[in-house]
Nucleic acid binder design. Structure first.
Ligand SMILES: [Mn+2]
Ligand SMILES: [Mn+2]
Ligand SMILES: [Zn+2]
Ligand SMILES: [Zn+2]
Lengths: 144, 144
DNA sequence: CACTGGCATGCAACTTTGTTGCAAAAAGAT
DNA sequence: ATCTTTTTGCAACAAAGTTGCATGCCAGTG
């Protein structure tokens, strides 16, 4: 059971820290990310907020969160775009979410494995790496 | 300069080997993959084939190639869907393309690093891994 | 608490991307 | 050359994402 009081305060703090005005849609969408232990797609958010907010507002809110470094997006092999909360020390333009992502092929859930760091690999000469990303598919705890 | 004669024969062979009838669109799209050293998006193919084939045909051809294991798709953090040729020993359903993919943030090219194998990482208890995928962003040889 | 400038939202209209059913055309087999 | 099966193009549709603009709400000021 999640403590609603502290979550509300947390949401406010995140928005303030990023110099964003505290609005209904931003609070709600941030709440959804905090409640979910996994990643969310645009469609998930639309479903969970119902008719409360316009589709366009959801797009713009996600875009804003991305730019501020509140969320990061996750590479997937299909065309789906997934977003997940960043750790505390991510900031505009500079992310530290170099952790592995796990996608369950059964339930479809995508989970940030915050404790599993992406290993760096040696590249052939000429390539100048900037960021390493890793996605593992398989079965999650519940589905195996 | 690419030898057109051998490429044509190669295209035929690939299609035959996968029990696909040899048609104009399949030949042309396969040719594009063989000529390009990187990955292609649906949009790239549409641009390069011009008005020659219907959009729907391109979608269906890519779908067929995917199912047959002629191409594989590449995870990306944005919403783009990328495809690249599989190695010879890929077959329907069973891919061996466990190599790292490099995306140049300057020119946008995506390259299969066929010789760089994706490292396996140790996951927290409960997760049952099936496939590991890795994407590296940075600057390619030409852009650095 | 009321006022106000600037930012966020909703709406409408539009573009882009992807899907489906079906008839015509092309490919492969005999 | 003829027949059967597969592939293609077209049309219509559905889903996903974008843009401009008027209205509404937020945060700061007095
Ligand atoms: Mn993550
Ligand atoms: Mn590849
Ligand atoms: Zn699962
Ligand atoms: Zn480049």
């Amino acid at each position: 059971m999640v403590n609603v009081f502290t979550m509300d305060a947390q949401i406010d703090e995140i928005l303030r820290k990023n110099q964003l005005s505290v609005t209904g849609s931003r609070k709600r969408i941030l709440e959804l990310f905090l409640m979910s232990n996994g990643a969310l797609a645009h469609g998930d958010i639309e479903k969970k907020t119902g008719e409360k907010f316009d589709r366009v507002t959801v797009y713009r809110t996600l875009q804003t969160f991305l730019e501020k470094g509140i969320i990061h997006n996750i590479p997937t092999a299909d065309n789906s775009v997934l977003y997940a909360l960043c750790k505390d020390d991510c900031s505009e333009g500079h992310h530290h979410d170099n952790h592995v992502h796990f996608i369950c092929s059964e339930c479809g859930k995508t989970i940030c494995l915050a404790d599993v760091t992406v290993p760096e690999v040696k590249l052939p000469g000429g390539f100048l790496p900037h960021e390493y990303q890793m996605v593992v598919t398989g079965l999650c705890k519940e589905c195996r």
